[in-house]
Simulated assay, not measured.
Amino acid sequence: MAEQIGLRERKRRRTRQTLIHTGLRLFAERGYDQTTVADICAASELSPATFYKHFPAKEDIVFADYPERVDAIRALASAPRPGESLESLLRRVFAVALEPGRWSIDPAEDLIVIRTQLIFAVPALRAIALRWLFDIQHEWAKALREAFPELDDITAHALIGAMVGALASAGRAAIENGRHGVALIEDITRALDVAMAGLPHHPTPRQEQAGATPL
Rank of each mutant, 00 (worst) to 15 (best):
G165Y: 01
P82D: 08
G23V: 05
R91Y: 03
F63W: 03
I20V: 12
R190C: 10
R92V: 06
T189R: 07
R25A: 00
E139I: 12
L167M: 09
E139D: 09
A166M: 01
L199V: 02
L125N: 03
A28M: 10
L133C: 08
D187R: 13
A166F: 01
V96C: 08
D33R: 14
L133N: 08
E87H: 04
R25H: 00
F134A: 12
M196H: 09
A75H: 12
T15W: 13
L19M: 08
D65K: 04
A28P: 06
A43P: 08
E45A: 15
Q207M: 13
Q117C: 10
R190D: 14
D110K: 10
L215C: 09
D153G: 04
V182Q: 13
I185L: 01
V194E: 04
E84L: 08
A38K: 06
D106A: 03
E176G: 00
Y66A: 10
E146N: 09
I175L: 01
A2V: 14
A95Q: 07
S47F: 03
A147E: 00
T189W: 01
K58H: 05
R69L: 11
A43R: 13
F55K: 00
H180L: 15
I20M: 12
L144Y: 03
A2N: 11
G211Y: 13
D153W: 13
P214R: 05
M163F: 10
A195V: 02
L90A: 00
K142D: 14
A168I: 09
T189Y: 04
V122D: 00
G161H: 15
A197D: 09
P107S: 10
E208S: 05
P214V: 02
A108P: 06
A191R: 00
G165Q: 00
E109R: 14
I136M: 02
H180V: 15
A158K: 08
V37F: 05
Q117R: 14
D110S: 10
T204K: 10
L184F: 12
M1C: 07
L118H: 04
T18R: 07
Q207W: 14
Q209W: 10
V70G: 04
T15K: 11
G178P: 05
K58W: 08
L192N: 05
Y52I: 06
E176Y: 06
A75C: 08
H201Q: 15
Y66S: 08
I73F: 11
A162N: 12
P214E: 03
G181M: 05
E29M: 09
A191L: 03
K11E: 15
L144H: 03
E45K: 15
S85G: 11
L26D: 04
A168V: 11
Q4F: 15
I175R: 01
V96W: 10
A197W: 12
V122H: 00
A2W: 15
K142M: 10
D39N: 04
H138R: 12
W132H: 11
